[in-house]
Nucleic acid binder design. Structure first.
Lengths: 174, 174
DNA sequence: TTGATTGCAAAGCATTTGCATGCTA
DNA sequence: TAGCATGCAAATGCTTTGCAATCAA
């Protein structure tokens, strides 16, 4: 649990530095800090989420820099953008993380990550059938998670207390 | 080709009227016109696309009404919202249209609709495994379509002439 | 008549951009 | 020192909302 500062995520940090050098960019304290906090947070977070976390460490860092740095991390292959249908862009770890897809509970906002090799295979087969060469994809399912399903079955009409972290807007999909 | 006004899409129109009545809403000339034009257009279109088409028939109709009516059509089950990654919301026909997913060419903007019962089945199986009850889903693949792939293979370095209808932003996904 | 509907303008939100200042390499 | 990076404010793009006037039922 107790690790020295800077000892973790060495691989990721090297990747970032390399990307920065290859692109002729510059290393800054802000970028270091944002990367550090991003790597430490094993959740889906928005630019704003990350901004507030960064604020706690260094109130001088601006929103814009967080936005820009997240783009950078994405380019470097460390982060991946995802959307769950509430209009915000979430970021998740990408490096050393197996590709996966998402189920989103429209009741409590829970996000379940899953992976199915069979589905991926069928997708590729489908693409091939159309002469399509896929570079990336996104599969999301919305619905009700186990806990919310059970809760709903019991208390039929009571309004839920906790607010979902991801509130999906109106009727349909994305 | 020559069909009398009002003879087409009777089913859809009835569904719309029914929905309007059930919800205690009112039938208006704007809604009729917007529905009419939406039904006639067998493409993915944004609220703005539809707005301009409507404008040609009745310049008095406002953007807002188109937005609101598209939401209405979605609620009535006649339309479905889709996003292709350019930040806009597209609408497609939903009634009497088999559910399908999308491949989006990041070169020319071509959108291919496809359906795979096997994939759907595996999705449901996956969901079940997590105790998740899905209500709807979205599967999209981005990549290069057949034509663009061929074109790229030939003229390696010439810039493309036509602009894609759907221009996918920056690096990643959604 | 009543209350839903419309269209305009203004507001909202998440994100991006312009620009003067600050700082890496 | 050159020019990338930063942070602020302003701008953007899509969508929603407030509101007075209009109109369907």
């Amino acid at each position: 649990m107790a690790k020295k500062k800077g000892e973790e995520f060495q691989q990721e940090k090297e990747i970032f530095l390399e990307h920065i050098q290859n692109a002729g960019l510059r290393r800054t304290s802000q970028r270091d800090l944002i990367l550090e906090i991003f790597l430490k947070t094993e959740e889906h977070l928005t630019s704003e989420d990350l901004y507030w976390l960064v604020q706690k460490k260094d109130p001088g860092v601006g929103q814009t820099t967080v936005y820009r740095t997240l783009k950078l991390l994405t380019e470097a292959g460390l982060a991946r953008e995802v959307r769950f249908g509430d209009g915000k862009t979430y970021y998740e770890h990408h490096y050393n993380h197996e590709h996966h897809d998402h189920m989103i509970c429209t009741e409590c906002g829970l996000v379940i990550e899953f992976f199915s090799a069979e589905i991926e295979e069928l997708q590729d087969k489908m693409a091939e059938k159309f002469g399509f060469t896929p570079t990336h994809h996104s599969l999301r399912m919305w619905g009700v998670c186990e806990a919310c399903g059970a809760r709903k079955r019991e208390l039929q009409s009571a309004p839920s207390g906790a607010q979902p972290r991801v509130r999906v807007k109106s009727g349909v999909a994305d």
